[in-house]
């Protein structure tokens, strides 16, 4: 395959005077699992939103299969946000069935008869895969945070996206539940051959999950004008090959600009 799946050519992003990203150049092949880490406001979420289509680069090009990335969200790029990812007025099953219905080019996306039966069955299977088979008829407000995220993931995966974007999906979850979610997401990544981008605050999570780790940070820093320079990808590492010492080094580098809560998050060392 000569053409990369996703290619970023010298991307920059600025809001007015504030430069968020600069000189981001990279390529991604299909099937990679990339984790994006970095301090708050370093542009990792902005980069994710560019792939999602809700933000566009101010300069440079972002290509998907050689074509410019679409400038609005579409069914080839699924997303799971940290919250508000599921529809509160639908039960668990309805949430996933609705996702199937949206694929149909009808005015309302309601399914009837055979189609509906099939969608319900498919949805139920998907929900079993993510471990929600016991909660099909509950509403999202009756679910725990972890269950809501499982539902959001099921919704995204049933639409068979080629790319799955995860924007701090497990940020609000307990550590024990987070480990379960990691297993789930790795499992889905393998079975559905997804290309995953995951933004996380938790460096440990970044090192453990996926195949590739990107660290977003500013290359130059002007203390009198903190927003004069944008961030870029400062480390691009295959996850298997990383050493403890390197983890330490990245951790130390990210820490000074982090808020206190995230520092607390990062004081846990990898085992």
């Amino acid at each position: 395959m000569s053409q990369p799946f996703i290619e970023a050519r010298n991307i920059g992003k600025q809001y007015g005077q504030d430069i968020i990203l600069e000189n981001v150049t990279t390529t991604v092949e299909e099937g990679e699992f990339i984790t994006l880490v970095g301090a708050s406001g370093c542009g990792k979420s902005t980069f994710l939103k560019m792939i999602l289509g809700t933000e566009q680069p101010s300069s440079g090009e972002l290509l998907l299969n050689g074509e410019p990335m679409p400038n609005e969200p579409g069914p080839d790029r699924g997303i799971v946000f940290q919250q508000y990812s599921v529809f509160p007025h639908m039960t668990v099953l309805e949430n996933v069935v609705a996702a199937k219905g949206f694929q149909k080019a009808s005015l309302t996306g309601y399914l009837f008869g055979n189609e509906k039966r099939q969608a319900r069955q498919e949805a139920a299977e998907m929900l079993t895969q993510v471990g929600l088979s016991h909660a099909l008829n509950r509403y999202p407000h009756e679910l725990s945070g972890g269950m809501k995220q499982r539902l959001a993931i099921a919704q995204a995966v049933i639409c068979k996206p080629r790319i799955l974007l995860l924007d701090e999906p497990f940020g609000a979850l307990d550590p024990g539940i987070r480990a379960d979610m990691h297993r789930l997401i790795l499992d889905l990544w393998r079975t559905h051959k997804l290309t995953i981008f995951m933004v996380t605050h938790d460096l440990k999570e970044g090192f453990y999950l996926g195949t590739r780790l990107w660290v977003f940070d500013k290359l130059r820093h002007d203390p009198h004008a903190p927003n004069a320079y944008g961030a870029s990808i400062t480390y691009d590492l295959p996850v298997d090959a990383t050493q403890d010492s390197l983890y330490q080094e990245i951790d130390d580098q990210l820490r000074p600009t982090k808020s206190t809560t995230m520092t607390a998050d990062l004081t846990e060392r990898p085992t």
Binding site: L52, T54, E72, P73, G74, P75, R77, G78, I79, F81, Q83, Y84, S85, V86, F87, A98, A99, F102, Q103, G109, A152, Q155, A156, C159, P161
Partner: peptide, 11 residues
């Protein structure tokens, strides 16, 4: 987020 999510589901 819900509107974006719906669009990524093809709505």
């Amino acid at each position: 987020e819900q509107l974006v999510k719906a669009q990524t589901l093809g709505a």
